[in-house]
Nucleic acid binder design. Structure first.
Lengths: 191, 191
DNA sequence: ACCCTTGTGTCACTTTGTGACATCAACTAT
DNA sequence: ATAGTTGATGTCACAAAGTGACACAAGGGT
């Protein structure tokens, strides 16, 4: 049992987001963040591999949830049903954190390197989800495509949800997107 | 007309990839790369915003091609036809560079920050493609989803193509993936 | 009391990235 | 041709991001 537990970590995350939001990401130094959290810069880098990671570290909690909901049932399922369940669960888990996520997204969108990190993290999730789908009994090749499309849709909905105050909830958006994915390929351009 | 034209830039790219491949990305310093190319580190950073960018700078040529092929026709098209044409053109443009791309992909896959950069670049392309699709007459919301799915599929095929020596060509893979995307949602798991 | 673990600090160092200014060859215009 | 301009590069100084090695101190267990 740690002597001074995760307290420092949380203070670092809070200090980092605050500074990113009101000074800008590039203008915030790790030194300032660390001092604001009451630790030294060296401690920052013990918790987070680099300055970017402090924005994404908390997401790691969600992956086990996603994998769990894929693995929990047994018996044959149709892919779109499985996908609806998995993405719906993920959406529900995130729904309550909209304010925090929106602040974070503003920071991410302000610097290209950060969008890259966000996508890289999702790509690693996608690999694990693919593995879970294969474990669940889907053919490997199609599991990859399912996971790829699933994440693409989820990203899409997430960003729209964060950008559109007062619009439909995330879970609803994900549901709609899934319903529409089949027909979108049949849409025709108007000119 | 520049006095010493793009020569330095090309030498820098070559030197960088060589060093990344045989020393590893993290172990290669910008200083070494620059000296190997016969310039100073300062010059490296004039051509490339950072150490990562040297791996991706050449991709910028492909975006105009992609946008062009979407914009060139007029008249109504079905989305899947448009997508097949665009992704097919992109695949064809890349097909001949497999060796180079494969070397590069090994470097990218060896460090997470690099996959992030790759994805961030594609995300910016995706935005431009979405705009092009809207300009072509597709409804905005569906243009976004089309672009998202298109890129997800292309990435998928690209990586499979690079990983699988002697397998089908990239263009063929992209064609197959597009044909299968509709039915993949109906697939059932085996348990 | 003793060790052992664990989170943190300190220090020195490399690497990345930038701003300001100097240089020098080639092109341009008179 | 002479002068001025332009553009790529070099030089220098410096801030910020990371890292490795070692020290220290508090708590827990034997």
């Amino acid at each position: 049992m740690p002597r001074w537990p995760e307290d420092s970590r949380r203070r670092l995350v809070d200090a980092a987001i605050s500074q990113f939001v009101d000074r800008g990401y590039a203008e915030s130094t790790v030194e300032n963040i660390a001092l604001a959290a009451g630790v030294t810069p060296r401690t920052f880098f013990r918790y987070f591999a680099d300055k970017e990671e402090v924005l994404f570290a908390d997401d790691d909690d969600l992956l086990p949830l996603l994998i769990g909901v894929i693995a929990e049932d047994t018996g044959p399922v149709r892919a779109d049903v499985q996908m609806r369940k998995a993405l719906g669960t993920l959406a529900a888990a995130v729904e309550s954190r909209r304010d925090l996520l929106k602040r974070r997204q503003r920071v991410i969108d302000s610097h290209i390197a950060l969008s890259g990190r966000e996508l890289a993290k999702q790509a690693r999730w996608q690999k694990d989800v693919t593995t879970a789908l294969i474990g669940r009994g889907f053919p490997p090749g199609q599991s990859e495509i399912l996971a790829a499309i699933g994440f693409a849709l989820f990203r899409q909905c997430l960003h729209a949800w964060l950008a559109d105050d007062g619009g439909p909830g995330l879970e609803a958006r994900v549901g709609d997107a899934l319903s529409g994915v089949r027909s979108v390929l049949d849409v025709r351009s108007s000119r």
